[in-house]
Write a protein that binds this DNA or RNA. Structure first.
Ligand SMILES: [Mn+2]
Ligand SMILES: [Mn+2]
Ligand SMILES: [Mn+2]
Ligand SMILES: [Mn+2]
Lengths: 218, 218
DNA sequence: TCTAATTTTTAGACTTGTCTAAAAATTTAT
DNA sequence: ATAAATTTTTAGACAAGTCTAAAAATTAGA
């Protein structure tokens, strides 16, 4: 149905659309995929021919319903495989992404349904990102950045914005794990750094970290 | 390291070498991969450049040690994934091959080592074929075709020669499963058909079937 | 509005992998 | 040994995907 390359473009557009309701520009896609605008321009024609995007010239592309469903299914596979790697194969959360980038392109509906069942129908991947359902529906969860919490407010750590290996390993080193309860003890006006209470311990957190950690306010 | 296409050629040559100690001909490879001799000729140059085959002109190719190890690792991955699909995802043995053809190309040593462990370090795939170890060593097992058994001889069913979906489903329908003990009750000279005793039941088996079932004599 | 900066597309080239058709080399048969 | 049949290689073309460089369209600025 779709080539590996087409799937990667669809996924990129899908992710970009989550942050924008306007058409996705050629340049934005090129940046996301670390490729050139001319290559994107070529691919847009192919995707348009295949009815997965609509293109209004110089206004960017938008996914059609078919495009959205196709892209969501790739994201679904990516995240289910990440759960599998962590839960069944003892990968840590900073090791799974590159392997999932490969596994997401395996074509077998039965495989992914059975994997879903084996994993107990998980709703989120190891980084706290929601797993689209079979129909491509994504439930958006009510999340805030840790940096938006005020003094004495609390939340449960539910996800990361930056899911680079570097950031994830940094969180590991600090002992910050999804599910942990965090309370803001102090907020420095000077550099927006935080003093937080997490799992009974006190920690100092820079603004950069607080801007990349999602919490659910409680 | 190797492209998907290069990996498929290596695997094809590896399988062909198991049945022949001579160089593998261009035509034999073309037939195995359902492609054209000219394409094979092109690819042999690439593989030769990459030091995974040696080519003596008009004498066919042979895998180098590096080539053998690389090919065996692909076969190892293919067979481990087949075990996974059957043991963990409830696939039947006739459904696994095509998915394994895709999964065998996933690149992650950790993935395959952990999968091996999850599966309990299996030695054979669902069709009775041996799984190469981490160093690419394949233990050849002592197996005979059911058709070579004489009247009143017995064996345990340990593998299939033809592993097409059609044959595997036929075996399912007849109730023949790996591990079953088979005794030859009668052998017809006329058409070489067999009357066998399997799991307490009597069955009539054509020569075609008996020529595609491996047993271990007991 | 008219020019400048930016974005996007096109033109042309290159790589990988494939194919058909034809040429060349080898093997087999007489 | 020579011709015939077979195998293998080469030549040339094509599709997918990418790139650089240049042209065209759009948007922004004065
Ligand atoms: Mn990921
Ligand atoms: Mn991908
Ligand atoms: Mn197989
Ligand atoms: Mn393959």
């Amino acid at each position: 149905m779709f080539t590996l390359s087409e799937e990667n473009y669809l996924k990129a557009i899908y992710h970009l659309e989550l942050d924008s309701d306007k058409g996705i520009s050629t340049n934005a896609i090129a940046e996301q995929l670390e490729t050139k605008a001319s290559s994107v321009s070529d691919m847009i024609k192919k995707l348009s021919d295949k009815k997965v995007v609509v293109y209004k010239k110089y206004k960017g592309v938008k996914l059609t319903d078919l495009g959205k469903k196709t892209a969501a299914n790739i994201v679904r596979k990516h995240r289910l495989w990440e759960v599998f790697l962590v839960e069944k194969l003892n990968f840590s959360w900073d090791e799974v992404h590159d392997v999932a980038e490969q596994l997401e392109h395996i074509k077998s509906p039965k495989l992914i349904n059975q994997l879903d069942a084996l994993l107990g129908f998980p709703t989120h991947d190891p980084h706290g990102d929601p797993i689209p359902d079979k129909n491509g529906n994504l439930k958006t969860i009510d999340k805030s950045l840790l940096s938006t919490l005020s003094k004495n407010e609390s939340g449960v750590c539910i996800g990361v914005d930056d899911s680079s290996s570097e950031f994830l390993r940094f969180l590991d080193k600090k002992g910050i794990t999804l599910g942990n309860k965090i309370t803001v003890l102090e907020k420095e006006d000077f550099d927006d750094s935080l003093s937080i209470l997490i799992e009974g311990k006190q920690l100092s957190i820079s603004n950069k970290i607080a801007n990349n950690l999602y919490i659910k306010k409680i």
